[in-house]
Design a protein around this nucleic acid. Structure first.
Lengths: 210, 210
DNA sequence: CAATTATAGTGAATTATTTCACAATAAGTC
DNA sequence: GACTTATTGTGAAATAATTCACTATAATTG
């Protein structure tokens, strides 16, 4: 089966991809829908349905070949390319994120850091080139950077987003406390906010929602 | 209208709560469903429907009183209490998170840090008490800590989660690259994974899903 | 090699969620 | 104070997503 892929399916398939990436490292060769479901916390029906949106790829009675399934999901969803990314806001948090390669798997490469404080830029010790914030648009365009992590204070977010979009960014992960939504159809945003996550978890256990 | 609250509604109401919290700081007094929707990126219909699950609270023709709506959402979803939280794994990322109060709004208070490396614990300069990881269960229980942020390496996650649950934790925000799902019905987990977010954003712009 | 077990794929049924349309009411305007 | 505009709340309709039930096929077992 093929056709429009529901968004929740896209989200789950990304998780499946991450799982397969992990399993491959441990030398695993094949896996069933049941096992995938157990690992990412959903029923096996959903997994099979999700995968079926991409066409047939499994072996009835036998499961999925990990390498093949990963390649399949990767090519359909565009996850098989190495993409360039940057970090904007080099306080403690931004710095920790920028310099922690493990956070980015090996699909994403941090090729730039930005901060509005020139002095801070000079004191940062890293192999990754760092630039003043006013050069964001120029560098994003020059280096064809597709993704950004933002860790700037709330009041600075809007302007930074404007510069990123002007440079042609495609995706933004926003860690600042002010949530943003994209005005540009080509740009996707994910807001990550620890207080917000804590609130959601608190609400779930308050309501006891499974 | 009242009854079971859909999960997506719970999630949006948490965002609305965050927004109201922010607006209150700037001295705003009232807001319409239309404006709320614009700010958090959904239609006004959804906002009104979501709020209606909590009962009537707005003024027809006039909008919502911010203080009242916030109190209403807060009490229904359990967001109006100050809850205690901890950070497990005090590498650069964990340390940056632990010491960044702004990330936790004023609803959540970090009252402990944990790391398995005793030497590291001794070098950390902070007012927050830090403990060795083997004391997790004991301290969680003693201090009635409800929420945790995990930033430990993938291989250590499972054991840490076991200790947190043994201590009676209610919610976990997991930044490690290995995603976890809770085996205990009373414990809720949110996995945050930057590579995963980047993958999802990449998939969205590859598929051009709005 | 027959019987059993494990498993993918999928149309149909079910359930969940979102969107719509509109009545009712408050505020603002001239 | 009549008229216009802004706004909430909600039942009903529409849409979306999940779950189910079953067929077909591969692997395994005795």
């Amino acid at each position: 089966m093929t056709g429009r892929i529901p968004k929740p399916t896209t989200a789950r398939l990304c998780k499946v991809y991450s799982l397969l990436d992990e399993l491959e490292k441990y030398g695993e060769r094949s896996i069933s829908s049941h096992e995938i479901g157990k690992r990412i916390g959903v029923r096996s029906h959903s997994i099979r349905k999700d995968i079926s949106y991409l066409g047939e790829v499994g072996i009835v009675g036998s499961g999925y070949a990990i390498e093949k399934l990963k390649a399949h999901i990767g090519s359909k969803l565009g996850l098989d390319l190495e993409r360039k990314a940057c970090v904007v806001g080099l306080g403690k948090l931004g710095n920790a994120i920028m310099q922690n390669e493990k956070l980015f798997s090996n699909n994403f490469k941090i090729v730039a850091g930005f901060d509005s404080n020139i002095n801070k830029i000079e004191t940062i010790v890293t192999d990754i080139p760092v630039y003043p914030a006013h050069e964001i648009t120029e560098i994003i365009r020059r280096d064809a950077i597709e993704l950004a992590v933002i860790t700037v204070p709330g009041h600075a977010v809007q302007e930074i987003v404007g510069r990123l979009i002007a440079g042609g960014i495609r995706g933004i992960v926003n860690f600042s406390p002010v949530s943003i939504s994209s005005s540009d159809d080509r740009v996707f945003v994910s807001n990550i906010d620890i207080a917000g996550e804590f609130r959601f978890l608190s609400a779930l256990f308050t309501l006891e929602q499974k």
